[in-house]
Design a protein around this nucleic acid. Structure first.
Lengths: 356, 356
DNA sequence: CCGCCGGGGAAAACCGGTTTTCTAGGCGCC
DNA sequence: GGCGCCTAGAAAACCGGTTTTCCCCGGCGG
């Protein structure tokens, strides 16, 4: 035992040099062992002696020192538009989990405060706080987009498609819309309304395009579309307009679970029965959907997997791979509950023009 | 101008030494100016020269170097049990925002993965990644609780009350239960059920205690209580049991918005009308509540403020203040919607014993 | 005239790692 | 037997800040 001089009873955190002394080597060797430096040649016995010392002392590298010495910070940052939107909650969960698996910490920034978030994000990078960025909040005019291409900072876009960026991590949105339409067609619906999201947002556009394309291919009348924010109020307002302007609709496809809740509310308010008068189907499935009134038919999307895939893609960039678009696999699945049914035969039963 | 030798066109990030050269001083002076070192005496002219240089060069300190040199990391970590629970989303939002205001980054960890989260959190501290911890996820048996008192790491408990810790940041939960009961009493209810949360969880206990105390004071029969997880399924199951075992109930008070959604569903499934047969009221108000069927009466709690207060309290500790309990002000407010009304006079109308 | 004091800032040590360079010894080879 | 090479690890230079110490200089009192 050569550790007689090591401060075994010290309450201090142990440093690399302590481990080195404990193992009877220099700190450079310890560092290289811990980082799996292939250019180091070392006897197996020495290696285990070092690893034992690491364990004995409970050594934990100092993140700052590491970052300073040029290595990575092993931290990522996630920018999302709205934490209270369950869609982003799931994506965040997946991303945080996967980051953890890969040994990264995850920083969080929310765009809703929109109080200089672009600036904040730029600072995270400039101050070497993170190795890379996950951006789930890029509207086409987002200031961040202007500064990213110049910087060398690795980043991916999550659930966003920034044209030509070559680093978009996305879901099979068009296929989801196709699946939703197929479900409605199988029930016999032909006049369909769509509650869409904010204009120019990539997922909005994809869902709409998927729906319109599929409708055209199926030879049914072009779906009526109204847009609203990605929340309950947005869904409520859009559905109210749809019902008022297109009394012949028999089904509504909502772009988001939050919107769908607003849609349900608007349909109830119009005095219509679900699915008797109007069927409602939603993109995004969550446990919540099963407890609505009526339980909501929805398209389950692999949101956690999206978050995980985004972290994987970002890590690949960190390891030197060129960025590339990723389409998260997993076919959309229609979870049939009780908000969809055959279309009514006659005119709607309720007083569609008189919301309470 | 003395900056002729400064690499003005360099694309590199500028360092402290660059700023110093640009301003014609040494880096120690720059550092002390930027950190408002009161022991430094400096001419006003020099100070502005330095600040100008900082601005001109777009200087951004290297977080790692700073942390290494003994200063703080200016990062905090937040541990929450479940991101998809909107309650925690709001708390998180408040915390992230306030951290940003105070110049801190926020790291996120979720307990749901419960894949060594305590270990992960300990690591964050041990590796000097964060200055302090916000813990919103402490069950009494949480492993983290065993290790925290020893460590000198500043931390607070958010929406949790760890007895004797002296660092609990909490809401006026008892008052909220009181307000809920007052609302029901005013409507004429006397037989009340309560859907409670997981046992031993501090908020669960507080809400229950508040309700029982207020009920006793009002002289009504002791409320019937069933517990369930803090999600829709938990609320559904608990409400189903309540309805089956206590057919005389005329109102249910749910512990969480998620649970309330399950309660609504269970009441519907039992064939009962809301509020005709059963009134439902919930702790936690969110926009979502207004779009349920029927729109849900709920107690609005200042969740974002809770998150902010937690960050404030933690920062106070970082600045050397002794930890102390904080009761976030803001009286609970009953947002009356349509899920509550006068109690029915006779027996319930539905087939309460036959959930579909 | 000299010593002391305080303002203004320079110098250097240090934080804990990473990475490149260097060296001592042992071995095979010619 | 001398040489180069390989192995195993030592040494030292850095990364970019913070903080303590030190120094110079001018003014002022004795």
């Amino acid at each position: 035992m050569r550790d007689a001089d090591a401060p075994l009873h010290s309450k201090q955190r142990s440093r690399l040099i302590d481990v080195a002394n404990h193992a009877g080597v220099t700190k450079s060797v310890v560092s290289r062992v811990l980082n799996n430096d292939r250019t180091l040649s070392i006897r197996e016995e020495t290696r285990t002696r070092i690893l034992d010392a690491v364990r004995d002392l409970g050594y934990q590298p100092h993140t700052g020192a590491r970052a300073l010495a040029g290595a990575s910070t092993r931290a990522l940052a996630l920018l999302i538009p709205d934490l209270t939107n369950p869609v982003y909650s799931r994506i965040t969960r997946g991303a945080v989990q996967q980051a953890r698996v890969r040994g990264f910490a995850m920083l969080l920034a929310e765009d809703s405060a929109d109080f200089g978030v672009d600036r904040q994000f730029a600072d995270l990078v400039a101050s070497h706080r993170v190795d890379g960025l996950l951006i789930a909040s890029a509207r086409p005019d987002h200031p961040l987009l202007g500064m990213l291409p110049d910087s060398r900072i690795p980043h991916v876009f999550v659930n966003r498609v920034v044209a030509g960026s070559g680093r978009n991590i996305s879901l099979q949105i068009e296929a989801a819309s196709q699946a939703a339409l197929d479900h409605l067609l199988a029930l016999g619906h032909r006049r369909i309304g769509h509650v869409s999201g904010p204009e120019q947002l990539a997922p909005t556009v994809s869902r709409r395009a998927g729906l319109l394309g599929a409708a055209a291919a199926a030879g049914i009348p072009e779906p009526s579309i109204e847009s609203g924010e990605f929340n309950e109020q947005g869904g409520y307002a859009a559905a109210t307009r749809l019902l008022a302007d297109h009394p012949d609709l028999t089904a509504i496809y909502a772009s988001t679970l939050n919107q769908a809740i607003g849609v349900l509310s608007a349909v109830h308010a119009a005095g219509l029965r679900i699915p008797g008068d109007i069927s409602v189907i939603s993109y995004d499935d969550l446990p919540l959907a099963g407890f609505l009134h009526p339980p909501l038919t929805a398209i389950a999307m692999p949101l956690m997997e999206l978050g995980q895939a985004a972290v994987d893609a970002l890590c690949a960039q960190l390891e030197g791979a060129p960025p590339e678009d990723v389409l998260v696999p997993g076919a959309p699945e229609v979870v049939v509950r009780r908000s969809t049914g055959p279309p009514r035969s006659g005119p709607p039963s309720g007083t569609a023009k008189v919301p309470s």
